[in-house]
């Protein structure tokens, strides 16, 4: 990943998102200021920064969940595989199927485990019963939940533990066959062992998906991500490999945040 400053002519096909001069306002408050960054594919990108720095807002831009908020104004461009997601021709339902999202608190639907995972594919139509069963099994396997739930697929999703519920939500996202998975603090409501399971899962999913994780947990960013973006007051301060950011960040503000000297 490169910030625009570092590399202007990088037209690397491996970039999933190319964000240029992105500004975003909630009413009169500017939440993102001139953000330019390229997000590499088949990598885990972590987004870190203090509360209110714009990291979740940035995440919600990427699948245009942000467009659900009426007061939001946006300028600049966000390209997903070279296509501007704010252009008129974009199909939001398809975009959000391709760019799935997992939230902070596990939010299974009040349905069975099976129906939670089958929900998206059913809406998108075309699946037969056996196709659905395969898709549910595969998604649960990819989310490392299959072994724990295969004998109780028709029990309610909410009967699972918190960590299992979060993996169920990941399976639900995977069932839509996305390319990108956005995760907004996916483990902040989980205990350490459930957290480590999700982190292992994130690492294994990166073989097949592009993953972007917002996290408050610096050590988590270190454990799961290849690249890290640091936001502060709506600005993207530094974008680099996680190794570089964690051992030798360029910007003093990154250094202060990373080392907990943030005043």
């Amino acid at each position: 990943m490169q910030t625009n400053n570092n590399n202007n002519n990088n037209n690397n096909n491996n970039n999933v998102f190319e964000v240029e001069n992105l500004n975003l306002w909630y009413g009169k408050t500017q939440a993102l200021k001139d953000v330019s960054v390229k997000i590499e594919g088949r990598k885990v990108t972590a987004i870190i920064g203090p509360s209110g720095c714009g990291k979740s807002t940035f995440l919600k831009v990427l699948n245009r969940l942000i467009s659900l908020i009426p007061s939001v104004k946006i300028s600049g461009s966000v390209q997903f595989h070279g296509k501007d997601i704010f252009s008129d021709g974009i199909n939001l339902v398809n975009l959000r199927a391709l760019v799935g999202m997992v939230f902070q608190k596990p939010n299974p639907f009040p349905k069975s485990i099976f129906d939670n995972v089958a929900f998206g594919p059913r809406i998108h139509g075309k699946k037969t019963k056996s196709e659905l069963a395969d898709l549910v099994e595969n998604s649960l396997k990819k989310a490392a939940l299959w072994e724990e739930v295969k004998d109780r697929l028709h029990e309610p999703g909410v009967s699972l533990s918190g960590g299992q519920q979060q993996r169920l939500c990941i399976a639900r996202a995977l069932a839509n066959e996305p390319e990108v998975i956005l995760m907004d603090e996916p483990t902040s409501a989980l205990d350490p062992s459930a957290t480590l399971k999700i982190e292992d899962l994130v690492r294994s999913l990166r073989e097949q998906y592009h993953i972007i994780v917002v996290t408050h947990n610096m050590q988590q960013a270190g454990r799961v991500s290849d690249n890290t973006l640091f936001f502060l007051n709506g600005e993207l301060i530094e974008a680099d490999t996680t190794e570089k950011i964690f051992t030798n960040p360029k910007d003093k503000r990154t250094e202060d945040y990373i080392t907990g000297r943030f005043g």
């Binding site: 270190g222 964690f246 051992t247």
Partner: peptide, 9 residues
């Protein structure tokens, strides 16, 4: 303490 960056170095 999970030291990072300058502290880790």
């Amino acid at each position: 303490q999970q030291p990072l960056a300058n502290d880790l170095r």
